[in-house]
Structures are given as C-alpha cells and as structure tokens.
Nucleic acid binder design. Sequence first.
DNA 1: CTGAAAGCGCTAACAA
DNA 2: TTGTTAGCGCTTTCAG
Lengths: 374, 374
Amino acid sequence: MVTIKDVARDAEVSVGTVSNVLNGGRVSAGKRAKVEASIQKLGYQVNTLARGLKTQKTDYVVVILPNLSNPFFSLILQQLERSLAGHGKQIVLCLSDGDKEKERRFISLARRNKIDGIIGITYSNIDEYLDDSMAFVSIDRHFHNGIHLVSSNNFEGGRLAASILHQNGSRQLLSFQTLSSLNTEVRKRQQGFEAFCIEKGLSYSSMTFSEDQVKSVYSSFDSRELISRALKLYLTDVAGRPKVDGIFASSDHLAVVICQEIQKTGLRIPEDVQVIGFDGLRTLNQGDPLVSSIEQPVQAIADTAVDMLLRLLQQQPVANVNDLPVRFIEGWSTRPRPAPGPDQVCGDSGEPNRAAGCSVPGEKTQKAPPRSAV
Amino acid sequence: MVTIKDVARDAEVSVGTVSNVLNGGRVSAGKRAKVEASIQKLGYQVNTLARGLKTQKTDYVVVILPNLSNPFFSLILQQLERSLAGHGKQIVLCLSDGDKEKERRFISLARRNKIDGIIGITYSNIDEYLDDSMAFVSIDRHFHNGIHLVSSNNFEGGRLAASILHQNGSRQLLSFQTLSSLNTEVRKRQQGFEAFCIEKGLSYSSMTFSEDQVKSVYSSFDSRELISRALKLYLTDVAGRPKVDGIFASSDHLAVVICQEIQKTGLRIPEDVQVIGFDGLRTLNQGDPLVSSIEQPVQAIADTAVDMLLRLLQQQPVANVNDLPVRFIEGWSTRPRPAPGPDQVCGDSGEPNRAAGCSVPGEKTQKAPPRSAV
DNA sequence: CTGAAAGCGCTAACAA
DNA sequence: TTGTTAGCGCTTTCAG
C-alpha cells in the first residue's frame, strides 16, 4: 500500500507538506505541484481509517429504517442517499424491523464506529441511548423534545383529505389508519381529519390499528383479511346501502388494499365510495391512473433532514420542521373535481346528513373489531 | 472517551491483556473477569477505527445498486442487509443511477475506506478498477470471466415463460425486454424464450430497448408512450385481429405497463393476449391477483451473494452461480391452468381459442371505470 | 499467561 | 512555508 510517507519521499518533501496539500494547507506552488505529481504517479489514496482515528470523525451517516418493503421508506432512502452523497457523506444502512433492541444496537454501533450522525425513522425512543456526541434527526416520528424532527404537515394532510372528500360530495367519512404507538406525528393526520369534520359538523368515524396488527400489510397479504372484515362493519347497512361514502387511509398501500376490498363487495369507486390515501408515491401507484392521495414531499423531507444533520454536526442551532407542504393528487378513486376557479364555491350546501344514526361523530374504534363479529 | 488504556488501568492489567480478552486470546479466568468488570463499569466500547487501522479491515461491505425505484433492487437490498447483518457486516449504500463514473468513484471510495468487499448490480465493467485486494460479487450482471457472479436461471426463466404461454394456447409470441448493453445475464431470458419457440417451431418476435431509452419506466411514466407505440406495431393487423397473443416482458413493472396499454386498445387480457412478467415481486404487484410472472428467488440470490463474498474474503475458492431456480407464479394476466395432474396432459389440443364471454376468473378491472360514468 | 513496546497512516502542533 | 514529531486507540509480536 502506498502511504503518505511514500509520497513524501518521492516528492522530496516532508509528510507534513503532503498532508497540507491533501487538506488545503498553505504550500508553495512548486512543492504542491511536485506532491500532486507524486500522488498521481504512485496512485496514492488517503487511508480514511487513519484519518478518522486522528480526527475522530468519518464521513458516514447511519440511516435507520424499519424496512424497505414499504415504498415510502425506499424512496426516502434513495433521496437521502442522493442528498448525502452531494455532501460527501456515505450511508450505513440499518434496517430495524421496528425492533427496539436492533435500533439500540445500531446506535451503539454508530458510536463504536465514530459515525458522524444518524437519520432515522424509528419506533423506539432512541434518545435514551443518545448523548451529545451523537447527532440525530428523526423523520416522521416525534417522541419528545430532545429530538430533532422533520416531517411533512401531517395535520394539514389529514385536513385536506377530509376537505376533498367533503367537497366531492362525501358526507359519511371514515378514517382508517395504522399507527405505531410511539408515533405522535403521523397521528396528526387523524387529528387534522377530525378537525375538519368537527368544524363542518360532519359525521365521521375512525379505525386505528396498531402497526403490529397490520405490519404485514407491507410484506404480505395476511392482514388483508383483517382489513376486509373491519371494512365490512362500516361499509353498508343491512339494506345494503353505503353507510360510509368517503374513506381516508393513512397510506397509499392501505388505500389500494381498501379499494380492492371495497370493489369485492360490489360497491363502486368513486361513485359509491371515494378513497384517498397518503404518501402520493408514483412508484407505489403502479396503476394508471393512480389512487387519489395526499402527497408527501419526499425530496424536501430528505433534503431537510440532511440539512439539519449537517448543521447539528457543526454545532449550529436547528429548529424542528414539521410543516413541509403536502398536496392532493387527484387519482381514480375520487370523483373528478372542477378546475379550480378563481373564486371557488365550496360544496357546503347545507344538505342534511341522511344516513341516520350509524356513525356517531367522534366514534372511535381503537382496536380491531372482535374477529368473531365477522 | 474511555479507551483500552483506561480499562487496563482500572483492571490493573496491561493493555495487551485487555486486548486479549477483547479478541478471544488466552487470558486467565481471574484477569478476564476483572477486565470484563471494568469494561462494564466504564462503559468501554472498542474504537473500530483504531482497530481497522491496525488490521486494515472493517466490517463494511459496499453495496452498489442503480437505484431504489425498481422494487427488485429494494428487495435485493433488504435481503442483503438481513443476510450481512447476520454476519456482523454493515452495508455502505451506493446508488449509481447506472452511471459508470459514479460506480468507479464508489470503488475508489471502498478502497480508501478499507471496505472489506463489494456486492453490486452494476452497469459498467467495473473489474477494470478492481484488483485482487478487493472482493467483488456481481448480481445479475455478468461481464467477463474475472468477475464472480450470482443470478437466477434466466435462461430457464425465459424458456418457462414461453412454455407457459404456449401451453395456455398462445401461438404468436412476443418478447419485450429492456436491457443494459453490458448485461449478458438478463439477455439469457430472451435466449431461453427463443430457444423454446424454435424448438416448438412457434412464430415469435422480440423487441429490445436499451435501458437508457426506457430508464424512466422505473421513475416516471415518460417511457409509457414509447412502449405504447411499440406495442401497437405488433398487437393487431389491419383487420383489428390480434397479431400477437402472448407476451413475455422482462420485468413485472414493464408487464404492468404493457397490460395497461393493451387494455387501452380494447383487447382483453388474458382472453385475447396473455402476459407474463419477470421478477415475481409481491410488493410490486399491488394488484390482487397479481400479474403472472416468473419469480426470481430474491432471498436465495442475496444469501448466495453474501456467502460468496464471505468466502472470497477468506481467500477460499468460489464458483459462479447462475442457476438459482425460478418458478412461474400464476396471476390474472394468463389463462387459468389446470391443476398439475400426476401425468399432465398439455393444453396443446388445437382447441380454438374462443375465450367465450367474460366468465374467466382472471377477469379484472385494472383501471378505474370511465369517469363520465358517474 | 502477561506486559512492554513497536507501529498501523495520518493530522496538527510546534519549531525552524 | 516547511520539517519534525507526538500521538489517535488498537493489535501484535516478543520477552519475561
């Protein structure tokens, strides 16, 4: 292996001088040229291990993600890679499967390896394992105040979904979400959804599954059955009339599954029921046209996370960001919307809420319905 | 930071002894216990940078992939991570966008950082940049003999696709593939397909696009237009009759797009045209049922690649593997097949393919109903 | 079995 | 500006 010493000898200078040309120190033009020539000639490459040992830093950033089966995570990872590569940083990938113990091991590993910092979508309250020496940026999962967070405007996203469904004529809304118990940020989608309904006096209901229960929605179709049965509770009354005519799902993947299950019952989308998902990933939405969705600005999320991490590494103060703008993407699962006029008249025409009695506003099913009920 | 020296002092032994307990050397039980107690007490963690500087190795493996927009790559990466983590190795992720220059930089980076080895799906003939000091395992891309390769049995996959189409009654076959010019391994899908057709005396045609032309099929829908026009050349004659009644696509993603474009023309799938894709990813196939496909054993590919790399790192001899078994997954885009009997009678009974009516179980509305229908 | 000591390749003081 | 040198934390001889 060719070392800095070899270069120094070849260029007839000291190692200090070589180090200086490597690191942009002050070197006379003549010596610099000689050194660079020698580097070229010998094919010298710095040994980053040795450099890191000295400086106690590397150019690695650990990225912790639950898995890559969910295309949202894949896309986040892809954008993070591009963004970090632009800053000369490499990603060390850690897939946690949502396992707290694994997450903790990754953090320990990061410390052992003198990793510069961590960006992650995590399930556990990992700041317990962190100290000041480790910069950490959390995407989409807000635990408590010690942790730096970036996310899109989940509240507004939920609100937007409800408002679109309503504007398009849906009157009996249902929110269907999967959630990690520690995840307060994604929960805001639900809160935004509810806020709109309450504001407008709409009847709505919601179903929340823990991510454990439907975890496999991303890796298999086992949870399809669970979703299907849960849906049936809400879809129609005994007379076969739709009890619910607008559904907000907390992910596109979920939305697609919901659409399929609805269609199996004979109900038509979007004529009988409208569905809006969340994430807005085109790579997920294979179909053409796409499932209607609230799009998250993945690129902006990744860029912001990287930017925050870099600031953290330079000891600069950073503020949390949780209002990256979302937008509605019209797809096949909602009714066509009028081109946005200059002064849009809202569809709130005081129409009475028929569907007497089936959905109490604020009714919450926090758990899966009893399985025997189906 | 607590170092090995601190531990030595606390345990009242020498650093050499501490190092020995760390690395499984011979240490008396008494001293070992004392050292371990001190490690615990002080919260000591090895500095892998220092260790690496000494040993010239790390526990990092670089994984080079074109992108993560193609779910096949995401899934490969996920499996690689699991497999490598099981061997105590970490992944340094490099997304190349198929850019040879980037790939070269990654290899240079790997060398600078004393990375143990590289596993990758690459587009360039990267062994030009490699020397003996760098272990490399290529997935799915075989360049020339110097490189260690693992892939599924692409030839058999193509052959299987043709044979299924044929058994199910298709007589005019078309193979539609995208290909990197350097990729001789995926090319075998086409070769297997052709081999079957020639053997059976079937008429067939094939279309090959370079991955540059349709690169965006994985990240956007720009290439849809190109595919659509190319398809129209083959689909029907002037009388509107199908010229082609069985299509083999070189990826599922492509297959889905092809199905959609075919349906736009009014032809029915699988009654008029059968389509088989490649990869067999359930996470890609959102639909239920799935597009018919030749499934690659992603897990086995990843495990084999990791296994090969580890052998390489131990200087053990390794042989290429390019015959990992593929299998057909029946989906909605091919006609239903008889349950495989003990002595299967092939469906080549010259029966005219009248696809009477629409009661075929494979019938599926892939697209939203026309919006005007509301 | 244990300890002392010599580096691994590099950076950063410090002297010149 | 340049050269010299002392480590960064660890592994690994090599004596004892």
